[in-house]
Design a protein around this nucleic acid. Structure first.
Lengths: 209, 209
DNA sequence: AGTATTGGATACTTCTACTACCCAACACAA
DNA sequence: TTGTGTTGGGTAGTAGAAGTATCCAATACT
């Protein structure tokens, strides 16, 4: 498959594919000569993945590249690889001051109340801290009760995800977890928005069919 | 309060505040003369809100402006206002072809299976359709079973949100719902990521303290 | 042999979100 | 009253992200 065919198959302009090649988001095709290279199904899949991550998920090319590198070359520790993936996802956070004994007080207290055992400087902690602080700053602080309600429901979702990992294939598990974390996030948000709509509809127009 | 004070209080450069004024994200201060205007607590709140929406939530200024206009001047129908707000949130979707009798087949089937009564062209439908299509394109299609598991948990969250609306104050309800939808989304994502981490930790290191 | 396409490189464009600078009008302190 | 500093209002410049366009010599296909 030549590059123009790859473009036709995926609907992505050839100039953009060349850009992805330059930027390291797409592996080079197999060279068949100085002016010809062969692209295959792995390239089609990769291009679709890049478009899904940068388009619907809303990642920057830099963030997508980091995720893809983790999928291509995962460590053997799911736990650590997942941490690297999460730290690549938005919202971007700054490194915590290593001297600060309690860099994420809101998130730490939340985890303690929930009884969740998480590493205190896991990337998700910084993201939760930032999210809680942003809500407070904006005048809608999140109550402990609400946070616990959210956490319980999301814990159920996460358990569903991890219960379905192929336990006998660590590499597939890493890929599934890393990509699933990122790719299903838009589904999560869309479903929450639709649920708000559904419930508001029942509250305001209970008589409709 | 002068503009420099507003900048000092919020930590936002004066040049940026002027930019927000020009762009209609921040209402003008009360003029006290040709070269002096007075800013108050509503301006501080608004600046914090803009920074929360554009920073942590990740909205563009255009999207944040749309949300803020809805909060400033909501219709009297929570149902419709919420729809406008959701359509301003990412991922951006295109208008459906009005001749297409079934513009969002994946999302429609999902809603039917779930028994959710939603308007078939609600903005969230396009977003769900796009999210499901992106996951499929990327090689991780979402099973019906998984979608239902996610939907059940997120419906619980949405019910929690709407059960706590001040029923006697429609304007406050609109503000709470619109801003809560947007501002709590980063919390939702951070909690899901942390839950993955927590559960993976228990699976891989069940013996740790 | 001739035409079209490719890989590779470089340059250009568009958009967003600022950031910097300027200026005349004013406020305030000495 | 005079000097110093700030303000509103405007214009212009910047940096980064994500492409897009063009050129070229080297092929591949017909």
């Amino acid at each position: 498959m030549r590059i123009s065919e790859l473009g036709a198959t995926t609907g992505v302009p050839v100039a953009t594919l060349k850009y992805y090649l330059r930027e390291g988001l797409l592996h080079a095709g197999e060279a068949r000569g100085a002016t010809q290279a062969d692209y295959d199904a792995t390239h089609v899949r990769r291009v679709r993945l890049v478009r899904a991550l940068t388009g619907t998920v809303g990642l920057s090319l830099q963030q997508a590249r980091t995720i893809l590198q983790l999928v291509d070359d995962p460590g053997d520790d799911l736990y650590e690889t997942l941490g690297c993936a999460v730290s690549a996802l938005p919202p971007a956070t700054t490194e915590p001051d290593p001297d600060d004994p309690d860099p994420y007080p809101l998130a730490r207290e939340a985890m303690e109340r929930l009884g969740w055992r998480v590493h205190p400087t896991y990337a998700g902690m910084a993201q939760l801290e930032q999210a809680l602080a942003a809500a407070s700053d904006a005048g809608l602080p999140m109550s402990d009760e609400r946070l616990e309600a959210y956490a319980r429901s999301l814990h159920d979702i996460a358990r569903y995800d991890l219960d379905r990992l192929p336990g006998d294939d660590p590499a597939a598990s890493v890929e599934y977890t890393v990509l699933g974390t990122a790719l299903y996030e838009p589904v999560v948000l869309a479903l929450r928005r639709l649920a708000h709509h559904e419930i508001a509809g029942r509250m305001l127009h209970p008589d409709a069919d």
